[in-house]
Write a protein that binds this DNA or RNA. Structure first.
Lengths: 348, 348
DNA sequence: CTGAAAGCGCTAACAC
DNA sequence: GTGTTAGCGCTTTCAG
């Protein structure tokens, strides 16, 4: 079409037509244009035609910002997650559910950085989004207090929001860890270790606690078997050594989140299966292609994302409704790594 | 803090303070508040203090929408990619580069759906974003013509934009396929097949063409060895059968994109390495943990994302600059699957 | 069913 | 230095 847009002559941004321009072009009142744009049925068909013709002729596009400023509603919700651009089925579900509800989604990464999280959330508040879904990362969200008081709807995902009473949706961490432990126990393992995320994080805390409880319930000593901590490869490797090099080494392992799982697999190398049985919390991409394929406790991420949006929509609709926490069940996906019998595991 | 936010009594959203309220509270003029909020240095320190006190007292947050409407600049760019919430290092780089430039990123999925792509892009235009980065999916983007004419900056990523002259950044597809072929040829393979994305997609077209060229350059017949098509598992399985069950079966395979690669690996199962050598276009998450680890042609996704933002910023700054296409080099990452010698490959 | 006028919350000319 | 005023592009009372 227009071949040399690069040099369009005027050397700058062309002025965009507004509703006033459309009204003049169509020979109608501004109000009529507004009605046509918003599909108001109370406009005469011939007027509709005239206005639409003018809209097309001028390539008019309504300015969403002005509309939002006037109506006060954004039609957009924010999602502050740890990482966009990473596999995140919950985020995918959020986007899909939001779209189905006619909402635009503004997704941003908090990137495991507390100040980034703060910047992101404050920015979303300044943009007057209709609501925010957040995977909380930091431990102090006091700065959101006035926003909540001002009526900004917020839903926490995966973790509750520190000290703030907001709606929350998360997995049943304790049940998942219990299932993992039980599964390994049923396959004959009596020395089962846990390596997971830091207990400074809520989910890390819940999962480690659940694992300790499982050990105690089965009459096993806790010492040397529970290793929460940061997700750095070195820390995970050290924890693995402790678990496997003990006098009475672990024959099975529960990993507490995806990062830990991947670090463990990298550390164990190709011979993982010959050394111990593994059940991982969180499904991992391509887990079915590993050897052995990875047995996991899978979160119902679709349900989590969907619920997050629905909780948010409910709060937008009724800001005074009681705060609600939804716990989503997890499930065991058997693929091989968790079914290695205790007898097959060799000492290090 | 406030314990029962769920029932805050007024049963609805509290009215937020505006600059007028802050001005009244501080006993200054509206203009002064605006200046303080925008860090204008020409305000007396005592006024600054008074205004900031009022801002804190009222929990005032400026309304970004009004600011945008007035100034005409959004401070936000859009990224319409196939999938947020999937591994996409280019998107991660876009977010990071945008943030470093003080730009907010609005990311949305086009979800392999042409009408969704259109909705997304039109929505971004209506929001008057400062610019848009798009991984084009559909083949007809004529509806963007008026936007471009109106000065909306657009940059295409991974693929050029059908018939529209916009800036573009993409990988050197031909070189990558050439490298893959050459690598396998050097390891003794003389029957090398290609399974890739549909030729309806630009990159699929380029890669298939490059592969045909490589075959011809090495004096091999093209017939039965080049299989572009959709990425469904069945189609890939059929292509694989054709390549491996021929009278003179392929001993090596080049896969054309990540989806094809994963489909092929799933189809081949654990014994992939004993059947043929594989070099994959596009790196795959956990490729290093597969057995054998996957040899890939890796795109410089970080560079692509970074360049996309820089191209966009350059166009925002100077809408009349010449349209530019940047080709980013790819590299070979050797991990094992591509180094299986031809002699080791068995017939099906 | 349509038209004139006010105003969403902010910034940017101007005068003081 | 600070205060007043107009207006970004749209929606929405109110009269006609």
């Amino acid at each position: 079409m227009s071949p040399a847009r690069g040099g369009n002559g005027n050397g700058g941004r062309a002025k965009r037509p507004t509703m006033v321009d459309v009204a003049r072009e169509a020979g109608v009142a501004l109000r009529t244009v507004s009605r046509v744009v918003n599909n108001d049925p109370t406009v005469g068909p011939e007027y509709v035609a005239k206005v639409q013709a003018a809209i097309r002729a001028l390539h008019f596009r309504p300015d969403e910002r002005a509309r939002q400023l006037r109506t006060g509603i954004a039609g957009t919700i924010g999602a502050a997650v740890r990482r966009i651009a990473e596999v995140n089925p919950a985020l995918a579900a959020i986007e899909q559910t939001a779209r189905a509800a006619g909402l635009t989604l503004l997704a941003a990464s908090t990137d495991f950085d507390e100040s980034r999280e703060r910047d992101t959330l404050v920015s979303m508040c300044r943009q007057r989004l209709d609501g925010i879904i957040v995977e909380p990362f930091g431990e102090s969200h006091g700065y959101l207090e006035p926003e909540l008081d001002a009526g900004m709807p917020v839903v926490a995902m995966d973790r509750p929001m520190s000290a703030l009473s907001v709606d929350c949706v998360m997995s049943d961490n304790a049940a998942g860890i219990g299932m993992a432990f039980h599964h390994l126990h049923q396959h004959g393992h009596r020395r089962i270790a846990y390596i997971g995320d830091s207990e400074r994080v809520f989910s890390g805390r819940e999962r480690a606690a659940a694992f300790r409880a499982a050990l105690i319930a089965h009459g096993q000593p806790v010492s040397g078997l529970v290793h929460p901590g940061d997700i750095a490869a070195e820390r995970v490797a050290a924890a693995l050594d402790t678990a496997l090099d003990a006098a009475d080494p672990a024959t099975a392992l529960v990993t507490g989140n995806m990062d830990t799982t991947i670090a463990v697999l990298r550390q164990l190398g190709p011979q993982a299966a010959s050394r111990l049985a593994i059940v991982a919390f969180d499904d991992v991409p391509l887990a079915d292609l590993l050897q052995p394929a990875l047995t996991v406790i899978a979160q119902d991420t679709t349900q989590i994302g969907h619920t997050a949006v629905e909780l948010l929509r409910a709060r937008i609709a009724d800001p005074s409704r009681p705060v609600q926490t939804v716990i989503v069940p997890v499930s065991l996906t058997v693929r091989g790594s968790g079914e290695v019998p205790a007898s097959a595991a060799t000492t290090a």
